[in-house]
């Protein structure tokens, strides 16, 4: 393919990804269904934990990272579940599949939307987490953002693929967590460990093993998704 044709094809591909993200953001701005349900769920998880843990016995900095990621994980699962269910209304998914769009563009469009929604929700939950657990995250904000970014990306890469798979199933609400949670164990363990170390004031350089593990899984899951999304979306 000539360079000019390649640039045109690439632009077209990026425009299609952008169109899907634009559509998801506009829908969310109008309905606020996805964001509000994720936020309320994450908030409830934190509140339940804070009332069930005696922080005079357990150190908040030790239990906090686990609670934070449980809240992100559960809220994120709700978001992922809704993501493709919205496409099933009026058979919009069929409209997407009939368009001359590469299936990977659909995947990346949905991935960027899911990742952005979850990331926004997480950064709104962080101050609440800080207040409830009495942990000052501000001095560690930059490495924490890095950890949250890597962990959330991993969660969304495989989560978006599996939500597209489970969207066609009658038992989709049950199937998504069953398929997703075993696969994201390494990412969640890595993210919880790194968050603990960040809160303890350790630099990012001291956690390269965990960071490499999480980033490796991010890359592997993106590669797997690109390879199989065609088959996953086929009826």
């Amino acid at each position: 393919m000539h360079t000019g044709a390649l640039v045109i094809a690439m632009n077209r591909y990026l425009n299609q990804v952008r169109a899907i993200v634009w559509k998801d953001f506009i829908t969310e701005l109008k309905t606020r269904e996805l964001f509000s349900s994720m936020f309320i769920f994450a908030l409830l998880v934190i509140i339940i934990f804070i009332f069930s843990i005696n922080l005079s016995i357990v150190k908040a900095s030790e239990i906090g990272p686990g609670v934070m990621w449980v809240a992100f994980l559960f809220a994120g699962t709700i978001g992922l579940n809704r993501s493709f269910i919205l496409e099933k209304e009026n058979d919009c998914l069929q409209g997407l599949l009939l368009a001359p769009v590469d299936r990977t563009a659909l995947y990346f469009g949905k991935l960027i939307s899911n990742f952005s929604f979850l990331l926004i929700m997480e950064f709104l939950i962080l101050p609440i987490f800080m207040i409830f657990f009495n942990i000052d995250l501000i001095p560690h904000l930059l490495p924490l953002i890095y950890v949250i970014f890597a962990g959330t990306l991993g969660f969304c890469t495989i989560g978006t693929l599996l939500s597209s798979l489970s969207a066609n199933l009658k038992t989709r609400d049950i199937m998504l967590p069953i398929l997703l949670y075993p696969l994201i164990i390494p990412i969640i363990i890595g993210s919880v460990r790194m968050t603990s170390q960040v809160i303890a004031g350790e630099p990012l350089s001291s956690m390269t093993n965990w960071l490499s593990l999480v980033l490796c899984f991010d890359v592997i899951y993106i590669a797997v998704s690109i390879m199989i999304i065609d088959f996953v979306l086929e009826e």
Binding site: R12, N15, Q16, R18, A19, I20, W22, K23, I26, T27, K30, T31, L86, E89, N90, D91, C92, Q94, G95, L96, L98, A99, P100, V101
Partner: peptide, 24 residues
């Protein structure tokens, strides 16, 4: 088909704009 493939929360213009962008 009997299913419209239209997003109910978007306006008519936004729906067609979205598909026009998808079709390049």
């Amino acid at each position: 088909s009997h299913a419209t493939c239209l997003y109910p929360d978007l306006t008519a213009l936004e729906n067609l704009l979205f598909y026009a962008k998808l079709y390049g």
